[in-house]
Simulated assay, not measured.
Amino acid sequence: MNYANIEQVREGLLSGDLVLSTNACVGVDCYEDFLEKMSREEVRSIGDTVAQTCWEKLPGCEVNIMGSYRRGKSSSGDVDVLLTHPKYIKTIPRGALGELVSRLKHRGNIAHHLTHVEGMRESYPESEKARQEEEETLSSEDNSCSEPSEASNTYLPPGVPGSSSYMGVFWSPIYPKKRRRVDIKFYPYSERAFASLYFTGSGHFNRSMRLWATREKRMTLTDHGLFPINTSEGNLIRSTKRQQFHCKGVDATTEREIFDMLDLEFRAPNERDCFDAVVRKGTKKPVSYPDLDRSSFVQENGHKWVE
Rank of each mutant, 00 (worst) to 15 (best):
M1R: 03
Y3D: 04
I6M: 14
Q8T: 09
V9F: 07
E11Q: 08
G16H: 14
L18Y: 03
L20H: 09
N23S: 11
N23Y: 08
A24L: 04
V28D: 03
K37A: 06
S39V: 01
E41Y: 05
V43K: 03
V43F: 05
I46M: 00
G47I: 00
T49P: 02
T49H: 06
V50K: 05
T53N: 08
E56D: 09
G60T: 09
E62A: 14
V63S: 01
N64C: 10
I65C: 09
S68R: 04
Y69N: 12
Y69L: 10
R70Q: 07
R71S: 07
G72L: 01
V79S: 02
L82K: 07
P86E: 09
I89P: 11
L97D: 14
S102E: 13
S102A: 13
L104C: 13
H106L: 11
R107H: 07
N109Y: 13
H112D: 08
T115I: 09
T115A: 13
H116G: 15
E118V: 08
E118Q: 08
R121A: 13
E122G: 10
S123Y: 00
E126P: 00
S127W: 04
R131K: 12
E133V: 08
E134C: 04
T137E: 13
S140Q: 10
N143Q: 07
S144D: 10
S146W: 10
S146N: 10
E147W: 01
S149A: 13
A151F: 13
G162L: 04
G162E: 03
S164K: 05
S164C: 12
S165H: 12
Y166L: 08
M167N: 09
G168W: 14
W171F: 08
I174M: 15
R181P: 07
R181H: 06
K185W: 02
R192W: 10
R192F: 08
A193Q: 03
A195T: 01
T200M: 04
R207K: 10
W212G: 01
A213D: 11
R215H: 11
M219P: 02
L221W: 03
H224S: 11
L226E: 15
N230F: 05
E233H: 04
N235P: 07
S239K: 03
T240S: 15
F245S: 13
F245W: 13
C247T: 11
D251L: 14
D251T: 07
T254N: 01
R256C: 02
I258C: 14
I258A: 09
M261V: 01
E265G: 02
F266E: 07
F266L: 04
F266K: 01
F266S: 09
E271L: 11
R272T: 03
R272A: 04
C274P: 11
D276G: 02
V278S: 06
T283E: 12
K284I: 14
K285G: 00
V287T: 00
D293Q: 07
E300G: 01
E300T: 13
N301Q: 02
